[in-house]
């Protein structure tokens, strides 16, 4: 098999596996997987920027929140259809990421981290400041009746799973195509050696801006999806914690790999889920696991696979 075929087979296999999961796993895990897939889209969003372009953002919660509030507020106050609201959510994230990109890309490295962190903090405070509309930290509920996606009820287990699955499939396949395209290869070239990429005549700044916008928009789509599928919009999702989490997922799963985000989210979810069944001190276990993992799996879980099993992993 050629590398491209292997990659496609791998992604197809993962999607098939997720599909089989729905029909075989107990109801609890079906629900958990819906959540994991949505959050994996968020992690994919961050991975485009961090894993492939080498720009570490500590403020991705603002894009997630932009999608979430774009969808939530337009349903709540404009009464638009879910499809349109979803579009508004994605558009909000796209516009915000373009603005942030234009400003923040004047910086690099640690300064980029801080600038994105501060912008995200500003967005978080703005959500609180307009509490009259957003209900601040408390947030608001999208009623079941308001969550019909073009006649399709997303509040049932099956509805939720298949919407999450569909969106995740689009993202995984699109993401895989992106990183294998010449565009994706140029992003990696920028990550590896920005100076050299510039010498080769690439408009580095333009590529980085596009990466920020794509990354922010995908994260925003995850936010909108989260609000739609789980019926809740709140400021918690704009807080620093939700900027750190996707970074953790990506690093755990394997930065700069296509399957890393999903692995990272699932690993973290089930690590906490499983350990909390045995002890109330599951954070301790999670902490120890992170320390051990970073010591023995330097490039994340997919990184081990790449070095030990299949060097062709995208």
């Amino acid at each position: 098999m050629t590398v491209a075929r292997k990659i496609n087979a791998l992604h197809f296999g993962i999607l098939l596996f997720l599909l089989i999961c729905f029909f075989t796993l107990p109801a609890y895990h079906v629900g958990a997987l819906s959540r994991i897939m949505v959050l994996a889209i968020y992690a994919i969003g961050l991975n485009i920027l961090f894993g492939y372009t080498g720009l570490l953002s500590l403020g991705h919660a603002m894009f997630f929140a932009a999608g979430m509030y774009g969808l939530g507020l337009s349903i709540k106050f404009l009464g638009v259809s879910v499809v349109l609201a979803f579009g508004i959510g994605i558009l909000s994230a796209a516009v915000l990421s373009a603005l942030v990109g234009l400003l923040a890309l004047r910086t690099a490295g640690v300064s980029f981290m801080i600038v994105t962190l501060m912008f995200a903090q500003t967005v978080y405070l703005v959500v609180l400041y307009f509490g009259e509309f957003t209900r601040g930290d408390e947030g608001f509920v999208l009623q079941q009746a308001e969550r019909m996606l073009a006649g399709f009820d997303v509040t049932t287990e099956a509805g939720r799973y298949f919407v999450a699955f569909g969106a995740f499939s689009i993202c995984l396949i699109g993401f895989s195509a992106l990183v294998q395209s010449s565009f994706g290869k140029r992003l990696v070239a920028i990550r590896e050696n920005e100076e050299r990429a510039r010498m080769l005549g690439y408009d580095v700044w333009r590529y980085k801006l596009l990466a920020v916008i794509i990354s922010g928009t995908v994260s925003g789509a995850a936010g909108a999806l989260y609000a739609l599928l789980f019926g809740y919009v709140g400021a918690t999702f704009a807080s620093v914690q939700y900027s750190i989490l996707p970074l953790l997922w990506v690093l755990l799963g394997g930065a700069g790999t296509t399957i890393g985000p999903l692995i990272g989210v699932a690993f973290m979810f089930y690590l906490i889920d499983a350990s909390s069944a045995y002890t109330s001190a599951y954070m301790l276990i999670a902490g120890l696991a992170l320390v051990v993992l970073t010591m023995f799996a330097p490039r994340g879980i997919a990184g081990i696979l790449r070095t030990k099993v299949s060097p062709w992993l995208p």
């Binding site: 930065a255 001190a281 954070m283 301790l284 999670a286 902490g287 120890l288 992170l290 320390v291 010591m295």
Partner: peptide, 29 residues
Amino acid sequence: ILKRINYDPDRTIVGTIGMLFIIQQTTLM
């Protein structure tokens, strides 16, 4: 911890987040 991961920037982030969890939970308990 840090010495054994050669102060690699990415791994240090994961490692110190792990330390954060451990310290917080121990203090809580």
